Computed example of a mutant assay.
Amino acid sequence: MTQNLYIPASTGGTLMSNMPLITSIEELTAEVITDLLQAAGSLTESQHVTAVEPVSFGDQSGLLSYLYRVGLTYSDGAQGPATVVVKLPTDDPNQRGISDALGFYNRECTYYNVVAPTAPFKTATIFGQAQATDSTDFIIVMEDLGHMERIDQVIGATLPEIETVLKALAKLHAVYWGHQDLENLSSTFLPMDNPIYHAALPGIFGAGWASLKVNAPDLLDPEIIEFGDNYSTHLPQMLAALNTPTTLLHGDYRADNLLLDEEGNLAVIDFQITSMGNCAFDIAYFLSSSVTSETRAAHADQLLHLYHDTLTAEGVNYSFEDLEAGFRVALAFCLIYGVASFAGWDSFGERQQELMRSMASRTIYSILETNALDSLNAN
């Protein structure tokens, strides 16, 4: 049965809001959390949160948003979640500028409202959210998934983890493959060939590319340097190739956004870059950013077949040859994800710099090992 995804946003002071628009963690009060948990049925009307204690998720430099784990104290006899997670916009000017230009915050709020109820994997329960109508300010208060184990992106996903997340990804793509309501959502979850990407991505890539060549020149070889220097020239071809066939893309499907419980059940977070386009993009992004070069090279064909077999079993008619061709174009395009964050290199902490180097290195190796650039040079 086809599910109806489209739910238009409300009008007024906030979009899709069930709580006050709070713009800093210092504004969060016990009364606000009480109202949200009572509305969710986690507390009765006579039970209350009496204190909130927010703690930042460590070094968040280079991220698009700030996350806080908020400890909750309750009135006598009340039992609710020990913690919730609060998400707010970054104040990093580079990352905030990218997020504002491409509508990333609205995408995540819309995803949780519209798509999450039909997604084929667990997402965090949303207790409350609000968006401004006159800016890109937002807040999300959500379930804490801290009991689940995050896949370590720097170390790289193991083969069993890779298989689990690719099967889930195929099921996500199958649910929304050519879905009747995607057109209604295309102004939020932008298609890959949207003009805004043609306008914004050359500058985003260029700023990071200049920094990468200074701060990590050891990762580059002549073929990649030539491609990077001419990335904007190839961009229209890559975006056109990745625009169809159309399904819903997670957009940031990498290890840091994937969690597993003790039984191996998957939860997925962070939907700020959700978009529409060719399924190969999500696959290439995950395999080039979150898997060691050695593991990917040894198992790439097996893993592509696993994804394709799952997609086919879900009723999607798409040839493996087309998937493989799209995968190679997507690998070339994904160089931007290993490059863009380098624009803020000097302001990032050690872990973020290590993550940036690993993403860039793995993506570059994937491009070279698969001869992905031949798919561009042949046209």
Results as ranks from 00 to 15, higher is better:
residue 46 S to K: 12
residue 16 M to F: 15
residue 8 P to A: 06
residue 31 E to F: 04
residue 40 A to G: 07
residue 44 T to D: 04
residue 26 E to Y: 01
residue 34 T to E: 00
residue 31 E to Q: 13
residue 25 I to Q: 02
residue 30 A to T: 01
residue 34 T to R: 02
residue 20 P to R: 00
residue 43 L to V: 05
residue 31 E to V: 13
residue 22 I to P: 03
residue 28 L to W: 04
residue 45 E to P: 01
residue 40 A to W: 08
residue 41 G to V: 10
residue 16 M to R: 12
residue 21 L to W: 06
residue 14 T to F: 14
residue 17 S to H: 04
residue 46 S to N: 15
residue 41 G to L: 08
residue 19 M to P: 05
residue 14 T to S: 15
residue 12 G to F: 06
residue 44 T to P: 03
residue 33 I to A: 01
residue 11 T to I: 14
residue 33 I to T: 06
residue 9 A to E: 12
residue 7 I to G: 07
residue 16 M to W: 15
residue 31 E to H: 11
residue 18 N to L: 00
residue 36 L to N: 07
residue 30 A to G: 03
residue 25 I to R: 08
residue 47 Q to L: 06
residue 31 E to N: 12
residue 32 V to I: 15
residue 24 S to M: 03
residue 44 T to R: 11
residue 38 Q to S: 07
residue 15 L to S: 02
residue 39 A to D: 11
residue 25 I to F: 03
residue 24 S to N: 13
residue 19 M to Y: 03
residue 37 L to N: 10
residue 21 L to P: 01
residue 23 T to I: 11
residue 36 L to Y: 04
residue 18 N to K: 09
residue 19 M to T: 09
residue 27 E to P: 02
residue 25 I to H: 09
residue 10 S to N: 14
residue 29 T to I: 09
residue 36 L to A: 07
residue 13 G to Y: 13
residue 14 T to G: 14
residue 39 A to R: 15
residue 38 Q to C: 06
residue 33 I to K: 02
residue 17 S to T: 09
residue 42 S to G: 08
